[in-house]
Design a protein around this nucleic acid. Sequence first.
DNA 1: TCTCAGCGTTGGATCGTTCAAAAGACACTA
DNA 2: TAGTGTCTTTTGAACGATCCAACGCTGAGA
Lengths: 352, 352
Amino acid sequence: MPRSSTSSSAKSGPVTLAMVARRAGVSSQTVSNAINSPDLLRPETLERVRRVIDEMGYRPSRAAQTLRTRSSKLIGYGIQPAAFSYPVLDRFLHAVSQAAEEAGYRILLFACPPGGPTLEGYEELLDQHEVDGFVLSGTERGDPRQAWLTKRGVPFVGFGRTWSGRPIGDWVDVDGASGTDAAVEHLVALGHRKIAFLGWERGSSSAGDDRAEGWRRAMRRHGLPTRGRRGQSSVNDSDVARAAVKPLLDGGATAVVAASDMLALGCYQTLRERGQTPGRDVAVIGFDDSPTAELLSPALSSIAQPLEAIGRECVRLLLARMAAPDAPPERILLEPSLVVRDSATASLIAGG
Amino acid sequence: MPRSSTSSSAKSGPVTLAMVARRAGVSSQTVSNAINSPDLLRPETLERVRRVIDEMGYRPSRAAQTLRTRSSKLIGYGIQPAAFSYPVLDRFLHAVSQAAEEAGYRILLFACPPGGPTLEGYEELLDQHEVDGFVLSGTERGDPRQAWLTKRGVPFVGFGRTWSGRPIGDWVDVDGASGTDAAVEHLVALGHRKIAFLGWERGSSSAGDDRAEGWRRAMRRHGLPTRGRRGQSSVNDSDVARAAVKPLLDGGATAVVAASDMLALGCYQTLRERGQTPGRDVAVIGFDDSPTAELLSPALSSIAQPLEAIGRECVRLLLARMAAPDAPPERILLEPSLVVRDSATASLIAGG
DNA sequence: TCTCAGCGTTGGATCGTTCAAAAGACACTA
DNA sequence: TAGTGTCTTTTGAACGATCCAACGCTGAGA
């Protein structure tokens, strides 16, 4: 019956390879092989060693493994202050952690200073050999991290494309354009023609531009005009968001696709100020499917990112990069999915 | 001029203590002392060693330090799947990371399985000597973690009280009762008398019961009846939340204090269904001050937790416990602050 | 008959750091 | 001059794992 190391090693400190070896009557290298390359052992030896490992509750010391193999089995993730984070960060972190663990890795969190990530934290972690690689997120135009990590030969994967210049390194991203495109399709099917887009300032956020592009191309495909239907808000200001909606509504828009749930909320507010009801007078679709979306009244339709898949792919690409540093870069574009709720179900054709 | 290890060690691998020692003309122990106990060196030697360290961009290897000192300088945090997390987790994690870094520690994330944290992940991390201690959160009645960690002599700190039986270990918590008490005070000052509380099922969440208690005592202090004014919703179901609000409104409540922003949102919805306007017809105050609170219309008043202070205190208590394993436990109760927004500003007295 | 690759295992060196204790330098006293 | 004490630096040995080059033996191929 397996026993935890607690009881077996109560007085004598941790159980080591050598202790297991002595008890099993083999050398410590054999025990090491039993764990790392079991096929090298004769089946009966393997069985015996394994039994002793279980009996003694042996677990290899990560510090010693790291020192010897020069691999910490840790993946660094720099967490940014709240202002820059996004509403489903917790789900993303859980997904990445889970995927990492399945591959024997863990996530090391470190705090990025406010005002955008600097290289300092990354450099320290690397110089101390504390991590094997990084997962980046919140990469924007002019972000120096990818180029710097590439130059140093450090494995990394971005959640989010590299937007500036030619692409650097591996990344996983969500096809935001495809999401807003699908949103427009859904609205057109409901009978909407005057569909506006509420995003951020042009060029201020690459993901935002991408989402705008999906709207634009779907509109064009249906022969619908986009002029005067694109509203621009600043990133973190709900007042500006509310103001930006007004010209869209003045222009007679019957539906609004927003680049985030926060912007969609701004849209809700402006509608209410005008005595209109979101979902009935004007359809609204958000982006991110944040937890509050389904709690709003009316419940907010939103474009959901496949976070579990994102986490899985991030880890997969990162491990592949570690295994083959010179392999050609791999880029994964995942499809988001439109979650339809009350804010975008009423049909314009049937009248409502 | 300090140079990163990149350039100095481009071909020869990492800069080690021995390399610094050779270049500085001292033994490696002296270099170690220069870093860990500078007062042992003669000032001029110290100066010389330090210059070489800078020149070569030397940074000690954490793995080697960990192996030798048996301290990884890592703090474990088990992240739970989204359903159990709470809306300001990202800010909490950033705060803890930051505080940890200032003390030379980092946060190691690991994924807890859905359905509540198990001991397995904690045991593995400990047996492998991967972490020095833990920060726990989401502790509820019957949570086995504190007792188990205490028995094994592992340092930990809870964000959230231990509720079952007598208290175990150190913790940092927010005085939820004080928060809801203050909310009631604020509402009373506005002229409200019929103030309801919307919480979770009695006993299902200890923090929820605590928040209810603050409401009850403040009501009692003002001689206001609480009977029939406490609504109970289940934890993660917005339909139930909406239903639970109805009897409260039927009872003539002019204000609702909710145990979370999500519940407050359910309250918004029910009000709208009845053609009433939150903030004008019925005042609403939420809890957590999640990012969406200020984006709602009307902007939701909410009780904000001092997350930076929480992170700081968590780290402080944890380090203190590591330094003195047998010291009496320390418990910190922090005051939340009421953030007043449009959902609770209209005075009942002046009429509105 | 001789060479040699392969079998499963072992001993020894090594990763980079810190700890404990010894050694050297130097001044001061007897 | 030898002895004592203080201050500074060095030496040698861990810490716990993995990598490398053997070990002695067997059977196949030349």
